[in-house]
Amino acid sequence: MRAIVGNTMVPTIRLTVPGTLRYRAIAVRVVGEACRLVSSSTQRDPDDPVVHDVRDPFDTAVISAFMEIFNNIAIHAYKRTGGGVIDLAITPTERELVIEVRDHGHPFDLDDVTPLPNELDEDSLPEGGMGIHIAKTMLDEMTYEPGPPNLWRLRKRLSANQAAGARRS
């Protein structure tokens, strides 16, 4: 699959990492760079291209969601023990980013996720179960197909304002 970013055809970016949290930073870094292809966001310090610089709303949404899905796979699919890989297929286009995340671990039951309470107060502050909620809310579309391989498909579109800004830059 090839997509158009600006006037340039770009292929889908593929990355395979071991399914452990040790490799999350590498995957997040790649996703972050893919975000910048779409959003045209800039790094705070070009001489220090660390991933911990998320100010753009589009980048924020994608990276926040992706981190939670990676966590979920490493913890629930691979039970924190590794033993498998995570395959990423990242397709940036002019107006959106699509990330397909595949693993060969235990399937995840989305129906088991407890929704957050509608009204939060001190007593109802959750100490867990927030990851899927963050991912789903941050994205325009999130689907999961149990496998093998299990497939998470994440889609985030630029807002109209962001798309106009990206075209100008």
């Binding site: 911990h52 998320v54 926040s64 966590n71 502050l125 100490e127 927030m130």
Partner: peptide, 20 residues
């Protein structure tokens, strides 16, 4: 703080609840 995930939020919630 530049970046946080649900695990980081959970840690801060634990602190908040524990102190309160």
């Amino acid at each position: 703080l530049d970046l946080i995930d649900s695990s980081g939020v959970a840690a801060l919630v634990k602190l908040y609840k524990g102190v309160r």
